[in-house]
């Protein structure tokens, strides 16, 4: 489950609007190491749909999304 995954890096994009969190994730993934797990905190309505779709297209691994108090924590692993 998401709770057990060790996150390498967290992007706090709360308060940022679509496409901000998604674009931040793309930027961070580019410079990350293979195996890194990145969590994006977002409070916008687009990211929790966009990020899993992007992850599939970019052949990265989508770990999951948890909805917390007024924001989502979306977790992605860089696998290539």
């Amino acid at each position: 489950m998401i709770g057990n995954v060790e996150v390498t890096r967290e992007i706090d994009a709360r308060g940022s609007f679509c496409p901000g969190p998604m674009m931040e994730l793309i930027r961070v993934i580019r410079s990350a190491q293979i195996g890194d797990v990145i969590a994006v905190l977002s409070s916008d309505q687009g990211s929790k749909r966009d990020i899993p779709k992007w992850t599939a297209k970019a052949n990265q691994e989508f770990i999951g999304v948890e909805t917390l108090d007024g924001y989502d924590r979306i977790i992605v692993k860089k696998v290539r």
Binding site: C18, P19, M22, M23, I26, D50, W54, K57, A58
Partner: peptide, 11 residues
């Protein structure tokens, strides 16, 4: 700018 970003997301 937002649609262009969507283009970038989709490579």
């Amino acid at each position: 700018s937002i649609i262009a970003s969507g283009g970038v997301m989709n490579d």
